[in-house]
Each structure stands twice: as structure tokens, then as C-alpha cells.
Write a protein that binds this DNA or RNA. Structure first.
Lengths: 140, 140
DNA sequence: CCGGATCCTTAAGGATACTG
DNA sequence: CAGTATCCTTAAGGATCCGG
């Protein structure tokens, strides 16, 4: 099928190229809130808007709406509206969405497993940066 | 013991919480350029600054520098300077960095494998959005 | 070659108010 | 409940020039 690109790498598709459609996919996924939504829904259980909003600590309604729309556009998320009063809207990942969700969950799991090592690295980096700018009390 | 809660919520480590250190890790990783750097270096081969810059089509010098620094701070990237003339600087992932790099490569591989399905979803979404705003030939 | 330092643009994201 | 609509802040990112 014609993807609009005839590249030689990776079967005609290369995420490293600016105008490759996979780059656009990456730009959608490469977002803090997008990744959290995908992980939150990864188990297949549908969630309502407010439920998601509570789960994603710190997200605003505007940003959550935009995030959900972008995932819907890529075909990773399905939005179902129940015409009740009050309205009930459920979000669930598509098959494609659950695939990426699982991949992203590996990353969050990895973060949790290695958080202590990472925090130590941060401290070391910041200390070195601080001492290279401020030589401290020189006494030699 | 198993309380029925997700593992990620144990021990005060939960990426869904605003102030959890894992959230900060996610915010570093969840960036287009960060992910591309991790994939570019995932095979363990060190790369020079200009080589990376050429590979990441569209990145600017300033942004690449900042991206590399943030990865270095998290302990995912090692920077080695050879005091030659002209200067030679090599970047390579740490063991920790190669772990995440591999996880992220799964995502880019997935994007490449499913790009046609995703593009079809995009077209469908955009068409529906267009027709709901433009009701077509109106008879009034 | 590898950046540091500036200036500038703009788009993401937050706060708030309102509605079907 | 699940949004839409606005206004506003600010920080990411781009463009340029310069220097070790």
C-alpha cells in the first residue's frame, strides 16, 4: 500500500525523518498525559471522563479532552456516549491502543523498578554541576 | 501481601501521582527528541554530536543539547570528551539507558508496523469531523 | 566540531466561567 | 457529568551569532 513515502529504511518508513507519518504518531504518544491515559486504560476496562481525570493527578479538563481526542484520531481510543441524563461517556482503548498501552506500561514499570538508581544519578549530576560552578571553600 | 491494588501504587511510588519521582522520569522520557535519541543509541554504538544531529531530522542544536543533558542527568546517557583538536565528544547510553531505549524501540517498531492502519483511522476521523461541521448541500 | 548565549515566536497548558 | 469557550501565562523550541 502506498503510504506516500518510498524510503529504503524500515520498509519505506523511518521515524527519524521529519515528514514520515510515524513521526506524527510518535509526537502524539510522546506526551506525559497521553502515556498515562494509555496505561490507565491498558487493562481493557473502560473509564468515564471524570474517573480518568481523578486518576491522572494534575491533569486539567481541557488538556484531558485534547489528549483523548488525539488518541481517538489515531484510532487508539474509542469514545462511547450513552444518551442518558446526566450524560455518560466511556472511553476504552481499541485493539491497537491496547498494544501500545502494554508497551508503555513496560516503561512505567521500568521507571518504578529503577527509581532509586535514577534519583541517585540525579543527585550526583546536580552536585557536580553545583561544584563546578561554585568551587566552594578552597583550603589548600 | 496482595491487597488487590496495582503494584505501581505501593510504597509511595505511583506514576499517576503528581509528585511521584517516577512522574518526573516520565516527563523526561515523554518527549519526541528524547525518545529518538534513545532509539538512535539503543544498539550501544556511541555517536558524536553532529552525527546525532543529522540523524534526528529537524532537531536544532539547542534542543539536542538540552535533550542530551536531561538524559545525562537521569543517568541514562554518558558523555565522553576527547581533548583533541577539534574537540570530539561521544555519547553512548548507560546500561539503564539501553534498557529504556529497547522499550522505546518497541514503540517505534510498532508505529512502523501499523502506520497504514493509523493513517486510515486519521482520515476517517477527519472526514467525520469535516462532515459534522459541513452538513453538505442544504435545502432551505 | 561542539556547543554557549540571545532573542524571539508560538503553542501547550493552566485557570476560570458557563452550558446541554 | 462531560464537556465548550476564553483568557492568560510560560516555557519549549527555533533562529542566529559567537567562541573555545
Amino acid at each position: 500500500m502506498d503510504t506516500g513515502f518510498d524510503l529504503r529504511e524500515h520498509g519505506g518508513v523511518d521515524v527519524f525523518l521529519r515528514d514520515c507519518p510515524t513521526r506524527a504518531v510518535l509526537e502524539v504518544i510522546a506526551s506525559k498525559w497521553t502515556m498515562l491515559v494509555l496505561v490507565a486504560l491498558e487493562d481493557g476496562r473502560p473509564m468515564r471522563f471524570t474517573e480518568l481525570r481523578r486518576r491522572l493527578d494534575g491533569v486539567t479538563q481541557k488538556v484531558l479532552t485534547a489528549t483523548l481526542r488525539s488518541l481517538e484520531r489515531e484510532g487508539l481510543l474509542a469514545r462511547e456516549v450513552y444518551p442518558t441524563v446526566p450524560p455518560r461517556v466511556e472511553y476504552r482503548l481499541t485493539v491497537l491502543g491496547r498494544e501500545v498501552g502494554a508497551l508503555i506500561q513496560h516503561i512505567t514499570d521500568w521507571s518504578q523498578a529503577n527509581i532509586d538508581t535514577i534519583r541517585a544519578a540525579r543527585r550526583q549530576f546536580d552536585e557536580r554541576a553545583a561544584e563546578s560552578q561554585d568551587p566552594g571553600p578552597v583550603r589548600r
